[in-house]
Amino acid sequence: MKYLFFILLFSSSTFAKFVADGCPMESVRTQGPQGFYCAPLYGLFPQPQTDCIVCLQMQLQRQQQMTAFNPWLMQMPFPMMPPQTPWWAQQGRMMYPNLQAPGAWQYPGMNPQPYPGNAPVFAAKPNVYVKNSSKTKTSFSMKFDLKESKSTFLATTPWLENNQWSGEIQGEEFRVDKVNYDYLFYDARMPHESMQFDAGWCINRADLVRSMAGELIQLGFSPLAMSDFYEHWDQKIPDEPVFCVYPQYNKELDAALPIQVKPAVPFLRVLFVLVPHRPDDKSQPVFPPLPRQSHFELRTKSIEGDLQFLEWGVAFLDHRLIK
């Protein structure tokens, strides 16, 4: 049985090739227990059960990925693990039929019609957290520079005063206008020109949130930030079989929506742009292309210092941009 398994595993290298750099045409980067590798997009979709040998290879490969996926993540205690359905999701499902979408949804992206602005990247819920290892109190401000940007806000908490939040940092919370916030929140439409659509990975819906969370852990996000990420995005991603993830880091985001922070502390930003795929979609989409490049070199280097700001977000594209 062991020999059969090894024969199947090695022969499956035709379909799944571990690579450090780019993937060949007709394949995409995806994530499995041993890291990132190249595989055909169709291999990521749920397959009907058959007894053909190729299907058996792929089924074994998928089972291996499911059971051994990120074992280091599975061992982490709560709150790294997905929480129960949050109270607001239970209420929201009864009030709104589209709760599971990030907003007005029109496959394969956002319906822009009900929203202000023109930019095609709908950044839903970038949250900004503060890490304050010395626990000292200090004043802060975060100012969005919209003059040079095509970005438009859709929502913020707390509200902005002249495109700025200001107040005090108390422990690992922001205190604005005498109220403590675990994080500062905004939704915004951002331009896509400064963003990258070559590097990333594609993965089935069941593993999607965990794969993005794995990236956040590597970047050093706090347990609270991870818990909020799971709580929100377990609920707010449409039920499509496969998503391609295009991570954007400081370089791309600072160009799309610059933020000035005071004091001048390290500020790590990451935004995962998600594009869904169905089995009958084009195998070679025009835009965005399937991700074949590694995102490792794009990552912002991990930041250091007693005081740090870290921002995570997930974004979807205007459906008209996807071709």
């Binding site: 907003g103 009900p114 859709l154 929502a155 908490t157 206008d177 916030y181 929140f185 939704d187």
Partner: peptide, 22 residues
């Protein structure tokens, strides 16, 4: 026929929110 949810935000008590709309 049904309400379409556009956005939502969690706000701490006494906190503030802002939605930008057309």
């Amino acid at each position: 026929q049904q309400k379409e949810l556009l956005m939502h935000t969690l706000v701490p008590l006494n906190g503030t929110y802002e939605f930008y709309v057309i």
